[in-house]
């Protein structure tokens, strides 16, 4: 499956040439989970993944073509 990932906080800085307006296109196996996506990108498992307005747990599955947003954990503001 293919997902488009947008990175927030300082996560984009770890991917040279990252453009916030475009994000990153990632190809994953059909059954891939949030954990698989983070591992594929080399991001820590504590990263927060939001799809369709919901924060997804690590074992949640991903949908083909779904826009995925990834954040660093934030304790408040």
């Amino acid at each position: 499956m293919r997902v488009v990932v947008k990175l927030y906080g300082t996560l984009g800085q770890t991917f040279p040439g990252y453009q916030p307006s475009r994000g990153i296109e990632v190809n994953l196996p059909e059954e891939a989970t949030v954990r698989d996506l983070l591992a594929h990108l080399g991001l820590p498992e504590r990263a927060i993944v939001i799809v369709g307005g919901r924060v997804l747990p690590a074992d949640a599955g991903l949908q083909n073509n779904a826009p995925v947003s990834i954040f660093q954990p934030i304790g408040g503001g």
């Binding site: 927060i48 919901r54 924060v55 747990p57 954040f71 934030i74 304790g75 408040g76 503001g77």
Partner: peptide
């Protein structure tokens, strides 16, 4: 919000 953005609680 910190509990949501550390994955501890569903908002």
């Amino acid at each position: 919000v910190g509990a949501y953005l550390t994955g501890m609680l569903d908002p």
